[in-house]
Design a binder for these strands. Structure first.
Lengths: 189, 189
DNA sequence: ATACATAACATACAATATGTTGTTTAACAA
DNA sequence: TTGTTAAACAACATATTGTATGTTATGTAT
């Protein structure tokens, strides 16, 4: 039972959010002013403040939505036993997701010097990766701590992805074949 | 022959820069106001604008200085023929550099969500790495493009370093032994 | 040591942005 | 239809920026 019965609230919140989304495609977050949002959404500035404390609250909502979207996408990864296959499938899902919203990713990335989207990708993926590595290495004596291994390959993959988003130099299949070579058969050192 | 003969200019510029540096240890760059710098440096705000167009010019100077410092440090890397040895030595120099200014690195990183220092590390190292990989792979047919390989390992190493800076969980020698395992004998795929 | 040039100071200004508050109008739910 | 309240309107105090002007003081060069 949602408490938001009043259609006026739903309508203007949607309006504010959609306007913010489209502004994020054109400007860096810090450049976006509350008054810009209000002018574009054609609402009074006081109306904005009735719904959000400030623009940072709006950004948090935006980031959470993007995380949820990607999260759902990655959940499609059937739990393959083989470690390498699992990672390659996850990367494929990640690339699919990015490709499906390429305009959003490239624009937001260009405007905000990578950081916002990097964080999103990193945070969403790391949960699954750490879980998988831990499962693979149960009861094994590892030379390198699990968190180091995961951060190593996470950094590697995310860095390639961000490059891919902005440059579009290689095809998705190319990239996957490179990962096939770069990722070792057993991530359990 | 520097044209800055007037000691007053040298003095106040140094004052402004030093104040900025110490503020960067306590606050995110975007939070730092020109008036904060001036109050702390005990100069008039108009004096600031006589030397800098805005705070972004000051940040650029700061970043360039950090890049130069690290750049000089990495130049000590004697040109070892073996690829892996070369990278491990570079990583050792990088970790030395970070360890020697741990307070700066950790504070600036915490305040600015990694991005500024990440960029510095990344940019300075990438030149050397790409050069080395290209040298190693002259006249070879590579399965994976050089820029992909370099971005893969660069992302990996930088990600571990940023984690190390903020957490301080492992010793420098530990980290080097992990890299010894994680970096393959030949980065020439 | 003095005169000149100018850096630094003091101050004011316009412009922009934020967040708050009080009043009125209009849309919604019952 | 009526009571409720969201949204518009408008004004306010505050903060910050960048510029401009005249004055003071401090280095530089003679």
């Amino acid at each position: 039972m949602s408490e938001k019965l009043d259609l006026r609230i739903v309508k203007t919140k949607k309006n504010i959010y959609a306007t913010f989304e489209s502004l994020m495609m054109k400007h860096a977050f810090e450049e976006i002013k509350v008054s810009d949002i209000c002018n574009m959404a054609m609402i009074n500035r006081s109306t904005f403040y009735a719904h959000y404390d400030d623009k940072y609250e709006l950004l948090a909502e935006y980031i959470n939505n993007m995380k949820d979207l990607l999260s759902k996408e990655l959940d499609k990864n059937s739990n393959i036993n083989n470690s390498k296959e699992y990672y390659l499938e996850m990367i494929r899902l990640l690339l699919d997701h990015i490709e499906g919203r390429r305009d959003v990713f490239s624009q937001v990335m260009i405007n905000n010097r990578n950081s916002i989207l990097m964080d999103i990708l990193y945070e969403v993926i790391s949960k699954d990766v750490i879980k998988q590595i831990k499962e693979q290495n149960e009861n094994k004596i590892t030379k390198v701590p699990v968190d180091i291994v995961s951060k190593f390959y996470l950094g590697a993959v995310i860095n390639i992805c961000t490059e891919w988003i902005s440059s579009n130099k290689y095809s998705k299949e190319d990239l996957l074949s490179y990962f096939e070579v770069l990722i070792p058969d057993n991530i359990d050192v």
